[in-house]
Amino acid sequence: MALAVRPPFRLEPYLEFGKKAIAREATYRFDVFTSIGSFALRIYLLRMVWVALYARNAAPHGLPLHAILTYSAVALLMGLVLDVDQVSSLYTKLHDGSIVSDFMRPISVPLYFFADGTGEVLFHASLIVPSLVLALFIVHIDVPSGGTLAAFALSFVLGYFVGFCINFILNCTAFWTLEIHAVQLIVTWLTDLLGGELVPLVFFPVALQHALFALPFAAMFSTPLLIYVGEIGPDRYASALGIQAIWLVVLALASVVIWRAGSRRIVVQGG
């Protein structure tokens, strides 16, 4: 009789999940074109807005026009990756009950979602190159020094994983509510506005800035972007990256706890 010995971890299934997710995303060609098209449109509109605002009020808060345009362009490029809800299949599967298929397989279900989401994001990341080329026709993008770029890259990666955890927790709420659109709307709004995706947080009142800086939403967009444009200098790298890392640890732990609680009380819809 078989004994309940946990089999050794194998990477192979998860690599396959990732590959299949890339292949799946690539089948939706129309999405690719609309995604790049709307990117170009948004970057054009933001350029118009900032140019018009700066014509009346030269360089508020020390960010010159070229810096704010760089900020917006890089924010939109980051959005190609960070705005993807790579865990949305968890919600779909909880909602239609197809999650049962994943639970009866010899795999870690959260790791499945991680692998699947990573594949999805990698596909979207490949859109950065054509989008960047397109962006260079519309605005000038400053390129900072190697050290700044390295700090930005690290900060971006931390921000990506913070975003993954937020999406994971968000989709996990479907274990309880089976409906997540309201919460999703709020989180999107918070990242857009309070996370610095649209407007740099340095334009906000100082007290609010400090509060927002400590929120996980800022860890996704604002921190890497302010590093990129030099608003966060090398002397503040440690604290800025540190806050991101703390959020990552907190949200990752929360994800584990919420997943465990959720998957134990799983209610399969229909049948």
Binding site: M104, R105, G271
Partner: peptide
């Protein structure tokens, strides 16, 4: 010999499932 909900993955290796409606 396995308690399925406690050792879901090991149980998964032993079983095959077909849901007609899904």
């Amino acid at each position: 010999g396995i308690v399925p909900s406690e050792h879901r993955q090991q149980n998964g290796q032993n079983i095959g499932v077909v849901f007609g409606q899904r």
